[in-house]
Nucleic acid binder design. Structure first.
Lengths: 237, 237
DNA sequence: GTGAAATATTGATTTAGATCAAAGTTGATT
DNA sequence: AATCAACTTTGATCTAAATCAATATTTCAC
């Protein structure tokens, strides 16, 4: 009889291991991290994983599904700061003052892996590779945010929409999903909020792109038809 | 004769020590970090500390003066991602893929302290307090960026300008400078770029604020007169 | 100190996207 | 399968900010 190896390691056998926090770690290291985590907790569509003001207890990695994160202004306005897909880490903005400053809402029925932040910092000091990864994770978030600032600050509506679709396409592709058949999980209003546009503008521009043969639109199912042309929209008025 | 103590520790005696990377570290720890740094390197107004594409060699802390950081889009557009003051760390976005993705330009004659990134990561694994601080530093940058997204995505021009002035005022105040007498080091165009506005709009709104008695404007010297009213501009149309 | 270049202000006009409004469409729930 | 609520599309109109344009002012190099 063959002896089962590492039955206990959930991360070790996870299909997204190399696109998640344990990327590049040894099996032994992953096994250690594993012990501190809660794996694949279900979150129903529309549920909040955490909200503004909650004390930081843990970081979350998306196992399956997707989320939106948003911050609230005192006058009631909100800004969606990102749409997160599998392998992406949520809660990073809470490290700053040990309280969440954003809400994280599931866009579909999802599962997340949870690691207490205290444990995480301990593991970090024991595994320099984990520390290195985490610095990169945080830095990538900053780069991503800066790119969104460029989009929000200087792009026109069509350019924003094209950039958004291309970005989603690339991220789906990295997850072995189709790069051209996009199933959007967010509303037109969410897209607009994220891009600094009104929902009507989002709708109009999707229709226009469809008229021009760049994409086809059936509700939230969008097919990229001419990705090259779509890309050219993002770099020229 | 009195024996001088810790003559070698530059950070140890630095007036901004507690608002900089060594915040909260022991004198011994600071002394260690000190050995790896180059202190108070001068950077002339208009000079680039690093630019997009440069390999990440070091992180920089501003000792005196100020900088703007900006990213460039392939079509020539740019977005200023921040204005940095003393004690703030620059180069964080380069950790992600070990290359700078932004330019950092001195807005006035300035001095910076430089720490090689390799050394920094080693120090981090030896000093858990430093690691903790650095996680917070990176997270704060993310929070700051998210707030700018809210501004760029959903605020009107007047609200943006008011929020900008209040933010600068607070940061000057934290540095023992006047919270009401602001000496701006950036052009109207820089402000506009940062806020997603054109320079004419920046100029007009400053004039309007002055007409309404909220501020007074003499070129780049701006005095906040009615800060309460100014704040109310940021939370209501 | 002088002149040129860079920066800032103000006015007139235009326009991209917001707002207001009215149907459609989708999908969840009973 | 019917119903209701949430979401989406499309049209007409409005408006905040951009653009175009003309001076004014500041700054810096010589």
């Amino acid at each position: 009889m063959v002896k089962p190896i590492e039955l206990k390691s959930v991360c070790g056998c996870c299909t997204i291991r190399e696109r998640c926090l344990p990327a590049g770690l040894s099996d032994e290291e992953v096994l250690v991290i594993d012990q501190y985590m809660e794996h694949r907790l279900p979150v129903k569509k529309g549920e909040l994983l955490y909200s503004q003001g909650d004390p930081l207890e843990a970081l979350f990695a998306i196992s399956t599904g997707s989320f939106k994160t948003l911050i609230l202004h005192e006058d009631g306005r909100s800004q969606i700061t990102g749409f997160q897909l599998s392998g992406e880490i949520m809660g990073l903005d809470a490290i700053s003052n040990e309280r969440h400053v954003s809400d994280a809402m599931a866009l579909e029925d999802s599962t997340v892996c949870k690691i207490p932040y205290d444990s995480f910092e301990e593991l970090e000091s024991e595994m320099s590779r984990l520390q290195h990864n985490f610095n990169k994770t945080l830095s990538s978030e900053i780069v991503k945010d800066h790119n969104l600032m460029l989009l929000l600050g200087s792009m026109r509506a069509e350019e924003k929409m094209a950039a958004f679709l291309i970005n989603l396409s690339q991220r789906f592709h990295a997850r072995q999903q189709s790069a051209s058949e996009l199933v959007l999980r967010m509303t037109r209003e969410d897209m607009g909020n994220y891009l600094g546009l009104k929902l009507e503008t989002v709708s109009r521009i999707l229709s226009r792109f469809a008229d021009e043969g760049l994409i086809s639109v059936q509700g939230r199912h969008i097919t990229l038809i001419d990705e090259k042309k779509l890309h050219s929209v993002t770099i020229s008025a």
